[in-house]
Amino acid sequence: MGTTAVIVTDMLNPYRHEDAGLLQESVARIVDPLSALIRRASESDESEVLLVYVNDNHGDFSATRDDLVAAARKGERPDLVEPLVPSPDCVFLPKVRHSAFYGTPLEYVLSRAGVEKVVLTGQVTEQCILYTALDAYVRHFSISVPRDAVACIDPELGQAALRMMERNMRAEIVTAGTCLP
C-alpha cells in the first residue's frame, strides 16, 4: 500500500446536533478542496497513497458503512455529504470517540500499509482532528493538516488547534492541493 495516508474523519454527518449550524458553515467551505483531495488520493498508486475514512458511529454499534452513509444522506445537509461519500473499495473504520485511533484498528491498518505520513482531514478541527493528530504524533507518524480540508465549530478554537498541531506535534499545515506526493 502506501507511505502516505489521507484520513477523512467524520464527514458522514446527519447534522442534527447542538453545534450543527456552526459546523455546516465551515464544512460548506471545505467540501470542494476535500473532495478534490479525495479524488487525487483515490487515483494515486496504492503504493503511494492510502485513503482511509474513519467515522463516528453516532452511538449505533451495529451501524455499517452503508448505514452511516444512508443516515448522513437523510440528514439536514445531504449536499455536504454527497461529494464525500466513500467508495466501496476504500478502507472504512467506525469510531466511537474523538481520536480516529481510539478503539479502532487504524494503527494496525497504517502499519500494515507501511504508512509514515498521515494527512488529517474532516471535522472537527478543534476536537477530532486535534486528538487524532496527538495520537498520530505519539505513534511517530509525520502529520500534515490541510487547513482548507478541515472544518471547525469555533473558528478561533480551530485556528488555535492548527497552531497547537504545528507547534506541539510538528504538523505541517498545508493546503489540500499541496499535501500529496
Score class of each variant (00 low, 15 high):
V85N: 02
V145T: 08
C128T: 07
C90F: 04
T132G: 07
L130C: 09
D66A: 15
Q127Y: 12
D67Y: 01
S62K: 12
K95M: 02
L106H: 02
R65S: 05
P94M: 02
A100M: 01
R65A: 09
A100I: 02
R65G: 03
R65N: 03
C128L: 03
R139Y: 07
R73C: 13
V150L: 12
V109P: 01
T125E: 12
V115T: 10
D67K: 03
F92P: 00
A100V: 00
V69D: 02
P94S: 14
D60C: 08
L130D: 06
R65C: 05
K95S: 00
P78R: 11
A72L: 04
R112S: 06
V119P: 04
F101R: 00
V150M: 09
G75A: 11
Q127S: 14
S144E: 13
A136I: 00
G122Y: 07
D60L: 05
I129Y: 08
T132A: 06
R97E: 08
D135F: 00
I129Q: 03
F61N: 14
H98C: 09
A72M: 07
T132P: 07
P88I: 06
L120Q: 04
V119K: 01
E107L: 10
L84M: 13
L80F: 13
S99I: 02
P146D: 11
D60W: 06
L68V: 00
L120C: 07
S87G: 14
H98G: 10
A113E: 03
P94N: 14
A113Y: 00
K74L: 13
A151T: 09
P146A: 12
T121S: 07
L80T: 05
S142Q: 14
Q123D: 09
I129L: 10
D79V: 06
V138C: 07
D135I: 05
A113M: 07
V119Q: 01
S99E: 04
T64G: 08
K95D: 00
L120A: 08
D154R: 13
S99D: 03
V138N: 06
Q127H: 15
C128W: 01
D135M: 03
S87D: 15
P78G: 12
L110S: 03
I129P: 05
E126V: 10
D67S: 15
R65D: 00
G114H: 12
V124N: 07
R147F: 02
S142R: 15
A71R: 13
V96S: 15
E156W: 10
A113L: 02
V91W: 02
V145S: 06
R139P: 05
K74G: 12
L106A: 00
L120G: 03
F92Y: 13
R112Q: 13
P88D: 15
R97V: 13
V145C: 05
V145Q: 00
S62V: 09
P155R: 14
I143F: 06
